[in-house]
Nucleic acid binder design. Structure first.
Lengths: 195, 195
DNA sequence: CGGTTAATTGAACGCATTCAACACGAGTGG
DNA sequence: CCACTCGTGTTGAATGCGTTCAATTAACCG
């Protein structure tokens, strides 16, 4: 899929695709961060996932996108028409790739389900910070999303997220030099919370 | 897959496969109800799904089962060795079937994630009762699982499940002639709660 | 700088949990 | 048929975690 399709730039908050929109394309994040979410009629929002460079998105198996995708930051995204990919790579290869991506996503959702159903706010936030930290090699971790985004991903309110961060910082487990940047101080403590 | 494999009987509470066990088989529920769940080290349990006759289970894409499966009631289960199925039906057909099952499961988990992250106890219970009711054509719906099972599926305690059922019954939305049997009285009310 | 959005913090509230007692129901044995 | 038991379910009271609402502070951007 590397050679196919076009690179497209999406700016902050721009929609990449909408919920219930026809799924005609595959997308791959090249730069920036993407958020996929659902918005209920009553305004309650749930963030299903954050997607980082290298991640494939939009591979919903049905005819429609079940969640929308929005650029969290300015993004470079590779966009490939599904039909073109099938024509170039063959149905079998594409299906295998979809299965691969779907499987990973399924495993992630199973873990997330446990997080949402059976963990405290503190554990959820710890888990989230750790997963952000695991994504980069540097000591300092940048947080690309707002507290509200984190809250909507973790099934909490942004106030609670903020309080839990304050608490983890008070315990010297993490350190936030600024609101969107942190460093892990006691990795084992964080890991045992995130478990 | 119909002709392959063997029928196996599992009795109530018997384990069909364990978490982190090698995934060598596919299973199809023929009679009875199966529960798949994970148990954390600290005793917290999360029920991932209930499986009814016709459902495929054990098709985890990785080498290991990510959740365990237990017979909720006495069960008839068709068990097929994965290799045998691949030999008989071909890799492509099996992969297609796995993709199909995985996709459905993914969609279900996405909905469940919203339920766990963004809905009240009352809404969760309403949603669950409605989904049980939609599964059968009869007026009276049998509940095959305990309140604890329901709670572990909905991210609640069994006391809360019990209270919410009592409340829905007090509002004449459902009626429970006995603890494991109910009838929907105000479908539209239930549906708007379950939304 | 001022203006604006994001984030923090405080106080009060409420939903769900916890802990404990009691009721129900199915199965067993007298 | 009733008494007993054990697992399951219900109900009550108290607690607490997370939310809500409101005010303040911090970060960002012109």
């Amino acid at each position: 899929m590397d050679q196919l399709g076009v690179r497209h730039h999406f700016q902050k908050e721009e929609e990449i695709y909408a919920q219930d929109e026809e799924a005609e394309m595959f997308y791959r994040v090249l730069r920036g961060v993407v958020r996929s979410s659902t918005l209920a009629a009553d305004g309650r929002r749930m963030v299903g996932a954050f997607h980082f460079p290298g991640d494939l998105i939009g591979f919903d198996p049905g005819p429609l996108h079940r969640l929308s995708a929005e650029a969290l930051t300015d993004c470079e995204v590779q966009v490939v028409r599904r039909k073109a990919l099938r024509a170039a790579a063959g149905d079998i290869a594409v299906d295998r790739a979809i299965l691969e991506a779907t499987s990973r996503e399924l495993a992630r959702l199973q873990d997330h389900m446990v997080l949402l159903g059976r963990r405290s706010a503190r554990e959820r936030v710890a888990n989230f910070l750790l997963s952000l930290a695991q994504r980069v090699e540097s000591q300092v971790v940048e947080i690309p999303m707002t507290r509200q985004d984190m809250a909507d991903y973790l099934g909490l309110t942004m106030e609670t997220v903020s309080r839990m961060i304050a608490r983890l910082q008070g315990e010297a487990i993490v350190e936030f030099p600024s609101q969107r940047r942190f460093q892990v101080r006691k990795r084992t403590a964080l890991e045992s919370l995130a478990a």
